[in-house]
Design a protein around this nucleic acid. Structure first.
Lengths: 218, 218
DNA sequence: GTCTATACAACGATAGAC
DNA sequence: GTCTATCGTTGTATAGAC
Protein backbone atom coordinates (compact mmCIF):
# COMPACT_ATOMS: atom_id res chain seq x y z
CA UNK A 1 0.00 0.00 0.00
CA UNK A 2 2.18 2.79 -1.25
CA UNK A 3 -0.83 5.09 -1.38
CA UNK A 4 -0.73 5.40 2.38
CA UNK A 5 2.67 7.08 2.45
CA UNK A 6 1.65 9.27 -0.42
CA UNK A 7 -1.43 10.55 1.40
CA UNK A 8 0.45 11.11 4.62
CA UNK A 9 3.33 12.99 3.03
CA UNK A 10 0.95 15.13 1.06
CA UNK A 11 -0.89 16.00 4.25
CA UNK A 12 2.36 16.79 6.08
CA UNK A 13 3.44 19.13 3.30
CA UNK A 14 0.08 20.86 3.10
CA UNK A 15 -0.04 21.37 6.84
CA UNK A 16 3.48 22.79 7.01
CA UNK A 17 2.94 24.98 3.97
CA UNK A 18 -0.34 26.43 5.24
CA UNK A 19 1.33 27.53 8.43
CA UNK A 20 4.35 29.05 6.71
CA UNK A 21 2.34 30.78 3.98
CA UNK A 22 0.18 32.27 6.75
CA UNK A 23 3.17 33.40 8.81
CA UNK A 24 5.49 34.64 6.08
CA UNK A 25 3.50 34.94 2.90
CA UNK A 26 4.15 33.30 -0.47
CA UNK A 27 7.44 35.04 -1.25
CA UNK A 28 8.62 34.83 2.35
CA UNK A 29 8.21 31.07 2.41
CA UNK A 30 10.93 28.82 0.98
CA UNK A 31 10.40 25.26 -0.11
CA UNK A 32 13.32 24.33 2.10
CA UNK A 33 11.43 25.70 5.12
CA UNK A 34 8.31 23.76 4.16
CA UNK A 35 10.35 20.57 3.78
CA UNK A 36 12.05 21.10 7.14
CA UNK A 37 8.77 21.71 8.95
CA UNK A 38 7.22 18.67 7.28
CA UNK A 39 10.28 16.56 8.14
CA UNK A 40 10.99 15.68 4.52
CA UNK A 41 13.80 16.38 2.11
CA UNK A 42 13.29 19.35 -0.17
CA UNK A 43 12.96 17.28 -3.33
CA UNK A 44 9.98 15.41 -1.96
CA UNK A 45 8.02 18.62 -1.85
CA UNK A 46 8.67 19.03 -5.56
CA UNK A 47 7.72 15.44 -6.12
CA UNK A 48 4.24 15.92 -4.66
CA UNK A 49 3.71 19.47 -5.89
CA UNK A 50 5.47 20.37 -9.13
CA UNK A 51 5.73 24.08 -8.35
CA UNK A 52 5.46 26.31 -5.33
CA UNK A 53 2.53 28.12 -6.86
CA UNK A 54 0.66 24.86 -7.44
CA UNK A 55 1.09 24.00 -3.79
CA UNK A 56 -0.11 27.44 -2.78
CA UNK A 57 -3.19 27.31 -4.97
CA UNK A 58 -4.11 23.89 -3.63
CA UNK A 59 -4.10 25.34 -0.13
CA UNK A 60 -5.93 28.49 -1.16
CA UNK A 61 -8.75 26.58 -2.84
CA UNK A 62 -9.32 24.45 0.22
CA UNK A 63 -9.55 27.65 2.27
CA UNK A 64 -12.10 29.19 -0.05
CA UNK A 65 -14.25 26.07 0.27
CA UNK A 66 -14.07 26.34 4.05
CA UNK A 67 -14.98 30.01 3.88
CA UNK A 68 -17.96 29.26 1.70
CA UNK A 69 -19.20 26.58 4.07
CA UNK A 70 -19.00 29.00 7.01
CA UNK A 71 -21.33 31.53 5.43
CA UNK A 72 -24.58 31.60 7.30
CA UNK A 73 -27.67 30.92 5.24
CA UNK A 74 -30.13 32.89 7.36
CA UNK A 75 -33.39 33.80 5.70
CA UNK A 76 -36.26 36.22 5.97
CA UNK A 77 -38.23 34.10 8.41
CA UNK A 78 -35.42 33.57 10.90
CA UNK A 79 -35.17 35.61 14.05
CA UNK A 80 -32.80 38.54 13.32
CA UNK A 81 -31.03 38.59 16.67
CA UNK A 82 -30.60 34.86 16.75
CA UNK A 83 -29.52 34.55 13.11
CA UNK A 84 -26.99 37.37 13.32
CA UNK A 85 -25.60 36.23 16.67
CA UNK A 86 -25.09 32.67 15.50
CA UNK A 87 -23.48 33.86 12.27
CA UNK A 88 -21.06 36.08 14.19
CA UNK A 89 -20.30 33.33 16.67
CA UNK A 90 -19.63 30.84 13.88
CA UNK A 91 -17.25 33.29 12.23
CA UNK A 92 -15.34 33.99 15.44
CA UNK A 93 -15.10 30.25 16.06
CA UNK A 94 -13.67 29.77 12.57
CA UNK A 95 -11.06 32.48 13.22
CA UNK A 96 -9.88 30.69 16.33
CA UNK A 97 -10.14 27.22 14.79
CA UNK A 98 -8.27 28.03 11.57
CA UNK A 99 -6.21 31.17 12.10
CA UNK A 100 -3.77 30.22 9.35
CA UNK A 101 -6.56 29.95 6.82
CA UNK A 102 -7.86 33.36 7.82
CA UNK A 103 -4.44 34.94 7.48
CA UNK A 104 -3.75 33.43 4.09
CA UNK A 105 -7.08 34.82 2.96
CA UNK A 106 -6.14 38.22 4.42
CA UNK A 107 -2.80 38.19 2.60
CA UNK A 108 -4.61 37.39 -0.61
CA UNK A 109 -6.70 40.52 -0.10
CA UNK A 110 -3.65 42.65 0.66
CA UNK A 111 -1.99 41.31 -2.47
CA UNK A 112 -4.82 42.72 -4.54
CA UNK A 113 -7.20 39.77 -4.51
CA UNK A 114 -6.27 38.68 -8.04
CA UNK A 115 -6.29 34.97 -7.25
CA UNK A 116 -9.59 35.11 -5.41
CA UNK A 117 -11.52 37.56 -7.55
CA UNK A 118 -13.48 34.71 -9.20
CA UNK A 119 -14.49 33.60 -5.72
CA UNK A 120 -15.43 37.15 -4.71
CA UNK A 121 -17.50 37.71 -7.84
CA UNK A 122 -19.13 34.30 -8.27
CA UNK A 123 -19.62 33.15 -4.70
CA UNK A 124 -19.34 36.01 -2.24
CA UNK A 125 -21.23 38.66 -4.15
CA UNK A 126 -24.38 36.60 -4.76
CA UNK A 127 -24.33 35.50 -1.14
CA UNK A 128 -24.12 39.13 -0.05
CA UNK A 129 -27.02 40.16 -2.28
CA UNK A 130 -29.20 37.39 -0.87
CA UNK A 131 -28.32 38.32 2.70
CA UNK A 132 -28.82 42.03 2.00
CA UNK A 133 -32.30 41.23 0.75
CA UNK A 134 -33.02 39.40 4.00
CA UNK A 135 -31.74 42.31 6.07
CA UNK A 136 -33.87 44.79 4.13
CA UNK A 137 -36.91 42.56 4.57
CA UNK A 138 -36.31 42.48 8.31
CA UNK A 139 -36.11 46.27 8.32
CA UNK A 140 -39.40 46.55 6.39
CA UNK A 141 -40.96 44.24 8.97
CA UNK A 142 -39.73 46.54 11.73
CA UNK A 143 -37.52 43.85 13.20
CA UNK A 144 -34.25 45.48 12.21
CA UNK A 145 -33.22 49.10 12.45
CA UNK A 146 -32.45 50.71 9.10
CA UNK A 147 -28.81 49.88 8.53
CA UNK A 148 -26.76 49.58 5.36
CA UNK A 149 -26.66 45.80 4.78
CA UNK A 150 -23.32 45.82 2.99
CA UNK A 151 -21.52 47.81 5.64
CA UNK A 152 -23.03 45.72 8.39
CA UNK A 153 -21.60 42.61 6.73
CA UNK A 154 -18.22 44.27 6.18
CA UNK A 155 -18.15 45.18 9.86
CA UNK A 156 -19.06 41.64 10.90
CA UNK A 157 -16.38 40.09 8.70
CA UNK A 158 -13.73 42.53 9.88
CA UNK A 159 -14.63 42.28 13.56
CA UNK A 160 -14.62 38.48 13.55
CA UNK A 161 -11.51 37.92 11.43
CA UNK A 162 -9.42 40.40 13.39
CA UNK A 163 -9.02 37.79 16.12
CA UNK A 164 -7.06 35.63 13.68
CA UNK A 165 -5.45 38.24 11.44
CA UNK A 166 -4.38 40.73 14.09
CA UNK A 167 -3.62 38.23 16.83
CA UNK A 168 -0.41 40.02 17.91
CA UNK A 169 -2.44 43.13 18.63
CA UNK A 170 -5.00 41.19 20.64
CA UNK A 171 -2.18 39.47 22.49
CA UNK A 172 -0.46 42.75 23.33
CA UNK A 173 -3.64 44.28 24.75
CA UNK A 174 -5.10 41.24 26.46
CA UNK A 175 -1.74 40.08 27.76
CA UNK A 176 -1.77 36.67 26.14
CA UNK A 177 -3.67 34.32 23.89
CA UNK A 178 -7.27 33.56 24.85
CA UNK A 179 -8.08 30.08 26.15
CA UNK A 180 -11.18 28.17 25.08
CA UNK A 181 -13.39 29.92 27.61
CA UNK A 182 -12.16 33.36 26.58
CA UNK A 183 -12.75 32.52 22.94
CA UNK A 184 -16.38 31.74 23.72
CA UNK A 185 -16.68 34.99 25.69
CA UNK A 186 -15.17 36.95 22.80
CA UNK A 187 -17.63 35.39 20.37
CA UNK A 188 -20.52 36.44 22.62
CA UNK A 189 -19.08 39.94 23.04
CA UNK A 190 -18.81 40.56 19.33
CA UNK A 191 -22.22 39.02 18.67
CA UNK A 192 -23.69 41.28 21.32
CA UNK A 193 -22.18 44.38 19.73
CA UNK A 194 -23.58 43.43 16.33
CA UNK A 195 -27.04 42.54 17.63
CA UNK A 196 -27.30 45.70 19.69
CA UNK A 197 -26.20 47.76 16.72
CA UNK A 198 -29.01 46.77 14.44
CA UNK A 199 -31.75 44.68 15.98
CA UNK A 200 -34.87 46.72 16.71
CA UNK A 201 -35.38 47.37 20.39
CA UNK A 202 -38.98 46.23 20.43
CA UNK A 203 -38.28 43.01 18.58
CA UNK A 204 -39.36 40.20 20.89
CA UNK A 205 -36.52 37.94 19.80
CA UNK A 206 -33.92 40.52 20.75
CA UNK A 207 -34.57 40.28 24.48
CA UNK A 208 -32.74 36.99 24.88
CA UNK A 209 -29.58 38.37 23.37
CA UNK A 210 -29.75 41.67 25.13
CA UNK A 211 -29.37 40.38 28.64
CA UNK A 212 -26.76 38.58 30.69
CA UNK A 213 -23.96 38.79 28.15
CA UNK A 214 -22.32 41.93 29.44
CA UNK A 215 -18.61 42.27 29.05
CA UNK A 216 -16.26 40.21 31.14
CA UNK A 217 -13.57 42.85 31.09
CA UNK A 218 -9.94 41.92 31.46
CA UNK B 1 22.00 73.37 -3.51
CA UNK B 2 22.58 69.64 -3.80
CA UNK B 3 20.41 69.08 -0.74
CA UNK B 4 17.36 69.70 -2.86
CA UNK B 5 17.96 66.73 -5.12
CA UNK B 6 18.75 64.63 -2.13
CA UNK B 7 15.45 65.44 -0.44
CA UNK B 8 13.48 64.91 -3.60
CA UNK B 9 15.06 61.58 -4.47
CA UNK B 10 14.59 60.35 -0.94
CA UNK B 11 10.93 61.28 -1.12
CA UNK B 12 10.52 59.56 -4.49
CA UNK B 13 12.06 56.37 -3.16
CA UNK B 14 9.98 56.42 0.03
CA UNK B 15 6.79 56.99 -1.90
CA UNK B 16 7.48 54.19 -4.38
CA UNK B 17 8.61 51.82 -1.66
CA UNK B 18 5.56 52.43 0.53
CA UNK B 19 3.28 51.55 -2.32
CA UNK B 20 5.18 48.41 -3.30
CA UNK B 21 5.64 47.17 0.25
CA UNK B 22 1.89 47.62 0.74
CA UNK B 23 1.03 45.80 -2.49
CA UNK B 24 3.55 42.98 -2.41
CA UNK B 25 5.07 42.84 1.06
CA UNK B 26 8.71 43.07 2.05
CA UNK B 27 9.90 39.88 0.38
CA UNK B 28 7.68 40.42 -2.65
CA UNK B 29 9.22 43.82 -3.33
CA UNK B 30 12.53 44.08 -5.20
CA UNK B 31 14.82 47.06 -5.05
CA UNK B 32 14.75 47.07 -8.83
CA UNK B 33 10.98 47.56 -8.76
CA UNK B 34 11.32 50.41 -6.25
CA UNK B 35 13.94 52.06 -8.44
CA UNK B 36 11.81 51.68 -11.56
CA UNK B 37 8.72 53.15 -9.89
CA UNK B 38 10.78 56.02 -8.50
CA UNK B 39 12.38 56.60 -11.91
CA UNK B 40 15.91 56.09 -10.62
CA UNK B 41 18.67 53.54 -11.22
CA UNK B 42 18.84 50.70 -8.74
CA UNK B 43 22.11 51.84 -7.22
CA UNK B 44 20.63 55.15 -6.17
CA UNK B 45 18.24 53.36 -3.88
CA UNK B 46 21.21 51.79 -2.15
CA UNK B 47 22.91 55.15 -2.02
CA UNK B 48 20.08 56.73 -0.01
CA UNK B 49 19.17 53.64 1.99
CA UNK B 50 22.03 51.25 2.69
CA UNK B 51 19.80 48.17 3.01
CA UNK B 52 16.31 47.17 2.05
CA UNK B 53 15.43 46.60 5.68
CA UNK B 54 16.59 50.10 6.63
CA UNK B 55 14.32 51.54 3.97
CA UNK B 56 11.42 49.42 5.21
CA UNK B 57 11.91 50.42 8.83
CA UNK B 58 12.04 54.08 7.91
CA UNK B 59 8.65 53.74 6.26
CA UNK B 60 7.22 51.64 9.07
CA UNK B 61 8.21 54.15 11.75
CA UNK B 62 6.57 57.00 9.90
CA UNK B 63 3.40 54.90 9.70
CA UNK B 64 3.42 54.19 13.42
CA UNK B 65 3.70 57.91 14.13
CA UNK B 66 0.71 58.58 11.88
CA UNK B 67 -1.24 55.83 13.60
CA UNK B 68 -0.46 57.28 16.99
CA UNK B 69 -1.58 60.74 15.94
CA UNK B 70 -4.90 59.35 14.69
CA UNK B 71 -5.82 57.86 18.06
CA UNK B 72 -8.67 59.80 19.54
CA UNK B 73 -8.05 61.26 22.96
CA UNK B 74 -11.63 61.28 24.17
CA UNK B 75 -12.12 61.60 27.90
CA UNK B 76 -14.67 60.93 30.60
CA UNK B 77 -16.41 64.28 30.21
CA UNK B 78 -16.93 64.05 26.46
CA UNK B 79 -20.24 63.01 24.99
CA UNK B 80 -20.01 59.24 24.28
CA UNK B 81 -21.93 59.23 21.01
CA UNK B 82 -20.06 62.22 19.68
CA UNK B 83 -16.64 61.06 20.85
CA UNK B 84 -17.04 57.53 19.46
CA UNK B 85 -18.54 58.71 16.18
CA UNK B 86 -15.77 61.21 15.54
CA UNK B 87 -13.13 58.62 16.43
CA UNK B 88 -14.63 56.11 14.00
CA UNK B 89 -14.97 58.73 11.28
CA UNK B 90 -11.36 59.82 11.73
CA UNK B 91 -10.21 56.21 11.44
CA UNK B 92 -12.23 55.55 8.29
CA UNK B 93 -10.87 58.77 6.79
CA UNK B 94 -7.34 57.63 7.54
CA UNK B 95 -8.01 54.28 5.84
CA UNK B 96 -9.09 56.06 2.68
CA UNK B 97 -6.39 58.73 2.89
CA UNK B 98 -3.48 56.36 3.47
CA UNK B 99 -4.46 52.88 2.37
CA UNK B 100 -0.85 51.86 1.80
CA UNK B 101 0.06 52.74 5.36
CA UNK B 102 -2.84 50.70 6.66
CA UNK B 103 -1.88 47.69 4.59
CA UNK B 104 1.76 47.79 5.61
CA UNK B 105 0.58 47.86 9.21
CA UNK B 106 -1.72 44.92 8.51
CA UNK B 107 1.12 42.93 6.94
CA UNK B 108 3.23 43.62 9.98
CA UNK B 109 0.48 42.06 12.11
CA UNK B 110 0.20 39.04 9.85
CA UNK B 111 3.96 38.61 10.01
CA UNK B 112 3.73 38.19 13.76
CA UNK B 113 4.08 41.81 14.84
CA UNK B 114 7.72 41.41 15.84
CA UNK B 115 8.83 44.78 14.47
CA UNK B 116 5.93 46.65 16.04
CA UNK B 117 5.66 44.91 19.39
CA UNK B 118 7.42 47.81 21.13
CA UNK B 119 4.79 50.10 19.64
CA UNK B 120 1.98 47.78 20.71
CA UNK B 121 3.30 47.49 24.24
CA UNK B 122 4.52 51.02 24.91
CA UNK B 123 2.05 53.14 22.95
CA UNK B 124 -1.06 51.20 22.04
CA UNK B 125 -1.59 49.33 25.28
CA UNK B 126 -1.48 52.38 27.58
CA UNK B 127 -3.79 54.22 25.18
CA UNK B 128 -6.23 51.31 25.31
CA UNK B 129 -6.19 51.22 29.10
CA UNK B 130 -6.93 54.95 29.30
CA UNK B 131 -9.77 54.66 26.80
CA UNK B 132 -11.13 51.55 28.53
CA UNK B 133 -11.26 53.54 31.78
CA UNK B 134 -13.25 56.25 30.01
CA UNK B 135 -15.67 53.71 28.55
CA UNK B 136 -16.20 52.11 31.95
CA UNK B 137 -16.79 55.51 33.52
CA UNK B 138 -19.42 56.25 30.88
CA UNK B 139 -21.08 52.94 31.68
CA UNK B 140 -21.10 53.75 35.42
CA UNK B 141 -22.71 57.08 34.58
CA UNK B 142 -25.40 55.26 32.63
CA UNK B 143 -24.37 56.89 29.38
CA UNK B 144 -22.98 53.73 27.81
CA UNK B 145 -24.39 50.23 27.79
CA UNK B 146 -22.21 47.67 29.53
CA UNK B 147 -19.85 46.54 26.80
CA UNK B 148 -16.38 45.04 26.93
CA UNK B 149 -14.15 48.07 26.22
CA UNK B 150 -11.35 46.03 24.64
CA UNK B 151 -13.56 44.19 22.23
CA UNK B 152 -15.38 47.37 21.31
CA UNK B 153 -12.05 48.92 20.36
CA UNK B 154 -10.97 45.80 18.44
CA UNK B 155 -14.23 45.94 16.53
CA UNK B 156 -13.79 49.63 15.74
CA UNK B 157 -10.24 49.13 14.50
CA UNK B 158 -11.18 46.14 12.38
CA UNK B 159 -14.31 47.71 10.92
CA UNK B 160 -12.53 50.92 9.95
CA UNK B 161 -9.31 49.43 8.59
CA UNK B 162 -11.10 46.85 6.49
CA UNK B 163 -11.86 49.56 3.93
CA UNK B 164 -8.12 49.87 3.25
CA UNK B 165 -6.91 46.35 3.95
CA UNK B 166 -9.68 44.41 2.21
CA UNK B 167 -10.34 46.89 -0.57
CA UNK B 168 -10.66 44.14 -3.23
CA UNK B 169 -13.52 42.63 -1.27
CA UNK B 170 -15.27 45.97 -0.91
CA UNK B 171 -14.72 46.59 -4.60
CA UNK B 172 -16.18 43.23 -5.59
CA UNK B 173 -19.33 43.76 -3.54
CA UNK B 174 -19.88 47.46 -4.14
CA UNK B 175 -18.93 47.22 -7.79
CA UNK B 176 -16.10 49.73 -7.72
CA UNK B 177 -14.06 52.03 -5.54
CA UNK B 178 -15.97 54.58 -3.49
CA UNK B 179 -15.74 58.23 -4.48
CA UNK B 180 -15.33 61.02 -1.94
CA UNK B 181 -19.05 61.21 -1.22
CA UNK B 182 -19.30 57.44 -0.72
CA UNK B 183 -16.34 57.52 1.61
CA UNK B 184 -18.10 60.05 3.81
CA UNK B 185 -21.27 57.94 3.75
CA UNK B 186 -19.29 54.85 4.71
CA UNK B 187 -17.69 56.69 7.61
CA UNK B 188 -21.14 57.70 8.87
CA UNK B 189 -22.50 54.17 8.40
CA UNK B 190 -19.78 52.57 10.46
CA UNK B 191 -19.98 55.28 13.10
CA UNK B 192 -23.71 54.72 13.33
CA UNK B 193 -23.27 50.98 13.84
CA UNK B 194 -20.76 51.58 16.63
CA UNK B 195 -22.82 54.27 18.36
CA UNK B 196 -26.00 52.22 18.20
CA UNK B 197 -24.17 49.21 19.55
CA UNK B 198 -23.11 50.78 22.79
CA UNK B 199 -24.50 54.22 23.51
CA UNK B 200 -27.34 54.13 26.04
CA UNK B 201 -30.72 54.72 24.45
CA UNK B 202 -31.74 57.39 26.91
CA UNK B 203 -28.53 59.33 26.57
CA UNK B 204 -29.47 62.79 25.32
CA UNK B 205 -26.40 63.10 23.13
CA UNK B 206 -27.23 59.94 21.23
CA UNK B 207 -30.29 61.38 19.54
CA UNK B 208 -28.31 63.43 17.04
CA UNK B 209 -26.42 60.41 15.79
CA UNK B 210 -29.39 58.11 15.80
CA UNK B 211 -31.40 59.85 13.18
CA UNK B 212 -31.14 60.62 9.51
CA UNK B 213 -28.09 58.53 8.77
CA UNK B 214 -29.79 55.44 7.50
CA UNK B 215 -28.11 53.37 4.87
CA UNK B 216 -27.77 54.56 1.32
CA UNK B 217 -27.74 51.06 -0.06
CA UNK B 218 -26.04 50.28 -3.32
C1' DG C 1 9.19 6.31 -4.50
C1' DT C 2 13.18 8.77 -2.28
C1' DC C 3 17.25 11.45 -1.98
C1' DT C 4 21.82 13.91 -3.70
C1' DA C 5 23.81 16.96 -6.71
C1' DT C 6 23.36 20.63 -9.64
C1' DA C 7 21.62 23.92 -13.24
C1' DC C 8 19.68 28.37 -13.76
C1' DA C 9 17.70 32.73 -12.55
C1' DA C 10 16.95 36.57 -9.46
C1' DC C 11 18.09 39.39 -5.84
C1' DG C 12 20.66 42.30 -2.47
C1' DA C 13 24.64 44.61 -2.07
C1' DT C 14 29.25 46.62 -3.45
C1' DA C 15 33.20 48.45 -6.16
C1' DG C 16 34.75 51.72 -8.92
C1' DA C 17 34.51 54.77 -13.17
C1' DC C 18 32.60 59.16 -14.22
C1' DG D 1 26.41 62.72 -6.28
C1' DT D 2 25.30 59.28 -10.15
C1' DC D 3 25.57 55.23 -12.85
C1' DT D 4 27.60 50.58 -14.84
C1' DA D 5 29.38 46.27 -13.97
C1' DT D 6 29.72 42.58 -11.04
C1' DC D 7 30.13 39.61 -6.86
C1' DG D 8 28.07 36.37 -3.65
C1' DT D 9 24.04 34.28 -2.07
C1' DT D 10 19.72 32.23 -2.16
C1' DG D 11 15.85 30.07 -4.09
C1' DT D 12 13.16 27.28 -7.55
C1' DA D 13 13.34 23.55 -10.18
C1' DT D 14 15.41 19.41 -12.45
C1' DA D 15 18.41 15.36 -13.58
C1' DG D 16 19.77 11.20 -12.30
C1' DA D 17 21.61 7.73 -8.85
C1' DC D 18 19.66 4.62 -5.58
Amino acid sequence: MAGRIREQNRALILQAAERLFADKGFEGTTIQAIADLAGLPKSNVHYYFPTKERLYRTILEEILQTWLAAFGRFGEHDDPAEALASYVIAKVRLSFARPHASRIFAREMLNGGHLISPFLEDELRPWVEERAAVLRAWTRQGRLRPVDPHHLLFTIWAATQTYADFAPQIRAIEGGDPDAASQAAIARSVAEIVVRACVAQDDPGASTSRRGQAASAA
